[in-house]
Simulated scan of single mutants.
Amino acid sequence: MYAIGSAVELALQHRLPRALIVSDSLSVLEALKRGKFNSGTDPITLRTCQLFHEATTVGTVIKCLWIPSHSYIHGNDIADILANEGRYSGDPPNIPAGPQELWPRFGKELKHSWTAEFFDICAHKAHVYATFYDGSALSNTSWFNKVDRPRRFISTILRLRSGHCLTPHYLHRMGLRDSDSCDCGVTGDIVHVFFGCSENFSASAELYAALSSHRFPLPINIYEAIFSDRLDVLDLLIEFLVKCRIAL
C-alpha cells in the first residue's frame, strides 16, 4: 500500500498525464477497488486514497495492474531486487502506523506494566491474594467466563479470594461491627469460618476430609482450596457455606 501511494505521489510530482502502477499485492488492489474505509483504517491506506483523489482532481489518469509474484516476469523481478536493496540503503522511510500495527505491541506492554503494578500493590494490601494467585497464568478473560454456575456461586468465590466478605473480622475492620469475634468468641476470619468455629465442627470435619481426598497437602490451608481452579473443590466450599447457613 505504501509503495502504491509513493508511485501515485511520484506521478503527481512529475505531472504525468497518465501512469500505470503494477503490483503483485492483490489484496491491496482489491482494498483500493472496494473503497470501504472506517475509523479503523490505517493512515497509509487513507494517504494512498487521498493521493488517488488528488490525481483525479488534476487530471492524471492512473491505472493499476495486478501481476502474479514469483512468475519469472522480468520487470517484477527487477522491482523485487530494487526493493530489497532499498531496505538496506540510506535512512529508512518514516512510515506512519495505525492502530492495527501499534496495538499488539502496546497491548502487550500495557498488560505487562499493569500486571507488575497489580502484584506490587497486592504484596502490600492483599498479600493473601498475591501469595495464592498465579500471576504467570494471568488471562485476558475471567476464570468464570465459561463456568456453568449461578451468579451467587461466582460472587461468593470472588469475595473469598479478595477477602471482602461478611466475616466478623472484615466487618469489624470496616467499622460495621463492634467486635471481630465470632459468636463462639474467637476471631472470625475466613480460616475460622471454615475450620475453626465450634458451632460448625461437624461440617468442618466433613469438609476437611473431602479436601484431603483431593490430595491437598496436609495440614490443609483453606486458601489452597479457595484459589483452586477445580470446580469440584469450589463446589465443596459453597456446599459447606449453604449447609451451615453462612452468607458471605
Score class of each variant (00 low, 15 high):
residue 177 R to G: 06
residue 124 H to I: 08
residue 117 E to R: 15
residue 168 P to I: 00
residue 179 S to Q: 02
residue 146 K to F: 05
residue 67 I to L: 12
residue 126 A to P: 06
residue 121 I to E: 15
residue 110 L to D: 11
residue 127 H to E: 14
residue 73 I to R: 07
residue 164 H to N: 06
residue 120 D to C: 10
residue 130 A to S: 09
residue 162 S to D: 06
residue 168 P to Y: 01
residue 168 P to E: 02
residue 160 L to T: 07
residue 68 P to F: 02
residue 107 G to S: 10
residue 63 K to P: 15
residue 104 P to S: 02
residue 130 A to F: 01
residue 64 C to Y: 07
residue 117 E to K: 13
residue 159 R to I: 02
residue 169 H to C: 10
residue 169 H to W: 07
residue 91 D to R: 15
residue 181 S to Y: 09
residue 174 M to Q: 14
residue 94 N to G: 08
residue 178 D to G: 08
residue 150 P to R: 01
residue 68 P to D: 06
residue 130 A to D: 05
residue 91 D to P: 14
residue 131 T to I: 06
residue 89 S to A: 09
residue 76 N to I: 04
residue 93 P to L: 02
residue 132 F to Q: 11
residue 164 H to C: 05
residue 127 H to W: 10
residue 184 C to K: 04
residue 167 T to A: 03
residue 161 R to Q: 07
residue 114 W to I: 01
residue 144 F to P: 08
residue 163 G to P: 04
residue 65 L to K: 14
residue 63 K to Y: 15
residue 132 F to P: 11
residue 69 S to K: 07
residue 148 D to C: 07
residue 129 Y to H: 13
residue 107 G to V: 00
residue 120 D to H: 14
residue 102 L to D: 11
residue 135 G to C: 09
residue 176 L to E: 13
residue 116 A to G: 08
residue 180 D to F: 07
residue 167 T to L: 02
residue 131 T to R: 10
residue 173 R to M: 09
residue 108 K to V: 03
residue 124 H to K: 12
residue 81 I to Y: 13
residue 162 S to Y: 03
residue 181 S to V: 14
residue 149 R to N: 03
residue 177 R to E: 04
residue 150 P to G: 01
residue 98 G to W: 02
residue 142 S to P: 04
residue 82 L to I: 08
residue 118 F to W: 13
